[in-house]
């Protein structure tokens, strides 16, 4: 445990040393990067809707991204539970180790 904490501290030190050094080495140019999704190349309707949203309304796009990711995560979790229950394996005795 002591070794772990030492390593973490060492890592933090390395990060704090590396980041400024690397940044000063680059220096000059500092312009914001703007990305425009190329909707001309998107063929599906849903894809086009999201790519358009990305170009025009980033806030709504962000809300969508969070809601859809969370919703899909929950959907997958529950559907996997159902599928695993059907395999006939005893899953009650397994350890819960997941993050």
């Amino acid at each position: 445990m002591r070794a772990l904490v030492c390593m973490i501290l060492a890592l933090c030190t390395v990060i704090s040393a590396l980041v400024p050094a690397a940044v000063w080495a680059a220096g000059e140019k500092a312009a914001m990067l703007v990305v425009v999704a190329d909707t001309r190349r998107v063929t599906s309707d849903i894809g086009k809707y999201f790519a358009d949203l990305y170009n025009t309304n980033m806030w709504l796009f962000a809300v969508w991204a969070v809601v859809l990711t969370a919703g899909y995560g929950v959907f997958l979790g529950f559907s996997m539970d159902i599928i695993m229950a059907r395999t006939g394996l005893d899953l009650k005795s397994r350890k819960i180790v997941e993050h």
């Binding site: 190329d38 909707t39 001309r40 809707y49 358009d52 949203l53 025009t56 709504l60 969508w64």
Partner: peptide
């Protein structure tokens, strides 16, 4: 809410050129 958002969806469309 999602349904409403979808209804208003087509309002946000922009052309792209390169």
């Amino acid at each position: 809410l999602l349904f409403l958002v979808f209804c208003f969806g087509p309002a946000w469309a922009a052309e792209v050129s390169q």
